[in-house]
Structures are given as structure tokens and as C-alpha cells.
């Protein structure tokens, strides 16, 4: 035993002491509540282990809710990624004047945070039965929007609304990644004989892939967990999973606490799987990184 080791010991402990508040907070208000849900999903009312709660999920109604939730999240994430990417690419690489960037990024910051209840109001006021766009289409163009089968309280309606925060979020995240594409890469590809599309397929998209993938996973989780917008928009007429869970917690329906746990656990599983796929794909696509 070396004498110098003794005084180092408390210093080491002291180091760990510095992060105790953070880990305590994370444990109490992030980890334990989540664990509570996971465990609750497998616990029967009398405290025993059971799969009955999860089995309760496999009714046509609840399965349909998960399906529509996943579909909306996928649709709004895919469209958010594609459209956001196009706008970000237009501004960073498309030869638009540079002054557009600053305002666009600021606006994206605002719009990506303008979610929830007011966003629903905004779309109701615009595309609702008395909304500005509905009226303008009717009075000026003779188009009755609602006669075409459009309904803001529907799959496409909700997707359209979600895009209002999905697209800006994509722009915010992907713009720095696009800035990271060196001009020399494109020029080197061109002078070696590649066409523009070849450059994108073989060089730019593979380089951007991890960032695109991460953003997609984030957008998916973002849409999947969104409660406020959907409730303010549809009341409870569109039964997506978060609305179902919300009602369940409020005690409005179902009246089965075990099923609430199972619903919430199902949400964790979906976002968890989405992120596991992301991590796996990312690890595969990042071999060329440090």
C-alpha cells in the first residue's frame, strides 16, 4: 500500500458527490416514474405478475389506435424530413440570397416550439369550417373544401397540423449538417466525372445519413407523444394512443388501471423500438467516423 493513495480516496468520492443532485433528480423524476409504468404493466391489481394488462391491448379498438398513431407519426416524420430537407437545402445550397437564412432559422425556432393548444387553434381558424382558407376557397374559387372529403379532424388533417412543428424542427437540425458538406466534396465528385445525382447518392446522402436518421427518430417520437395539439383539435373524436391514455388517466373511460399502464408501456415500446432501430442503423452507417 502506497502512502500517496490514501489522501486521493476522498477526493475521488468528492468528485462523484458533484453529480449526485443530477442523478437524484433524474432517478426521481425520469427513471423511477418510467420504471413504475413498466412494472405496472406487468402487475395485477393484487400485486402479482401478469400479462393480462398487455393482453388487454389486443382489442381491435386499441390496436387501431396504435396503428393510426404510428401512421400519423410516420407520415408527419417522413414528410417533415423530406420537406424540411428541401427547404434547408434550398437555403444552404440552392443559391438563394444569404440573408434568408437568419430569419428562416429564427422562424423555425419559433414554429418548432409553437405546438400544443395554440397550434390547434391556428389551424381551426384557418382550415376549420369557418376558417380563412376554407372561406377564400369557397368564395373566390368556388371550391367547397369539406365537400372534397377533407376534414381537419382526420389522419391527413392531423398530419398537416403536425407538420407545422415537424418541418421547422427538421430545418433547425439539418441546416448545420448541410453546412458541414464541404464544397470541395461536390467539386471533387464532379471533376471525377460524377453527375449531380451521383454525387448526392454516393457522397452527400451517406454523409448526411446519421443526421437524417436521428432527426427522423426525433420527429417520430415528437409526433407520437404529442397530446395537446390532438386534444385541442379533435376533442377525443380521433382516438390516437396519447388521447386514449389521457382519457384513461383522467378516469373518463375504460376504468381499468392496469390497461392504463399497458397503454403507456406500449408507447414506451414504440418510441423505444424506433430509437433502437435508429441507434443500430447509425452504428452501421458511421463506420467512417471517429
Amino acid at each position: 500500500m502506497q502512502p500517496t493513495k490514501a489522501p486521493r480516496r476522498p477526493a475521488h468520492l468528492w468528485n462523484w458527490l458533484g453529480v449526485v443532485p443530477f442523478f437524484l433528480f433524474a432517478a426521481l423524476f425520469l427513471i423511477l416514474p418510467t420504471m413504475q409504468i413498466v412494472l405496472g404493466a406487468f402487475r395485477s391489481p393484487d400485486g402479482g405478475l401478469t400479462l393480462a394488462n398487455l393482453r388487454g391491448l389486443f382489442t381491435p379498438n386499441i390496436m387501431a389506435s396504435y396503428m393510426i398513431s404510428i401512421k400519423i407519426s410516420l407520415a408527419s416524420a417522413i414528410m417533415g424530413c423530406v420537406i424540411g430537407f428541401c427547404i434547408a437545402a434550398a437555403v444552404t445550397l440552392g443559391g438563394l440570397p444569404r440573408w434568408i437564412r437568419g430569419p428562416l432559422l429564427t422562424f423555425s425556432g419559433v414554429a418548432s416550439n409553437f405546438a400544443g393548444v395554440p397550434l390547434a387553434f391556428a389551424f381551426l381558424a384557418t382550415l376549420g369550417r369557418l376558417g380563412l382558407v376554407t372561406i377564400v376557397l369557397r368564395d373566390w374559387f368556388g371550391v367547397n373544401l369539406y365537400a372534397t372529403g377533407f376534414n381537419i379532424l382526420s389522419f391527413w388533417g392531423l398530419t398537416l397540423v403536425y407538420l407545422f412543428f415537424q418541418i421547422p424542427l427538421m430545418i433547425l437540425i439539418i441546416t448545420p449538417a448541410l453546412d458541414g458538406l464541404k464544397r470541395e466534396w461536390k467539386e471533387a465528385a464532379l471533376i471525377l466525372g460524377a453527375t449531380g445525382p451521383q454525387y448526392w447518392r454516393m457522397i452527400a446522402l451517406p454523409i448526411l445519413f446519421p443526421a437524417l436518421l436521428g432527426t427522423f427518430a426525433l420527429l417520430f417520437a415528437n409526433a407520437f407523444g404529442a397530446v395537446a395539439t390532438a386534444i385541442a383539435l379533435t376533442g377525443s373524436s380521433l382516438s390516437i394512443v396519447p388521447i386514449l391514455l389521457f382519457a384513461q388517466i383522467r378516469g373518463d373511460v375504460l376504468g381499468d388501471p392496469g390497461l392504463g399502464y399497458a397503454l403507456a408501456f406500449g408507447m414506451i415500446v414504440v418510441t423505444g423500438v424506433a430509437n433502437a432501430v435508429y441507434v443500430w442503423l447509425r452504428a452501421r452507417s458511421e463506420r467512417w467516423m471517429k
Binding site: A188, L190, G193, I203, I207, W288, M289
Partner: peptide
């Protein structure tokens, strides 16, 4: 166009494609 000229070029720094060996 550059891709029809059959010219070779070496750039100032690190213009290798990072995702390729």
C-alpha cells in the same frame, strides 16, 4: 461541364470523401 472535361484536381485540404475508404 466539369464532369465532361476529364481533368484531375487536388484540393487544398481534406477533400477526400469521408464516407468512403
Amino acid at each position: 461541364r466539369p464532369n465532361d472535361r476529364n481533368i484531375g484536381m487536388v484540393f487544398q485540404a481534406y477533400a477526400l470523401f469521408p464516407n468512403l475508404t
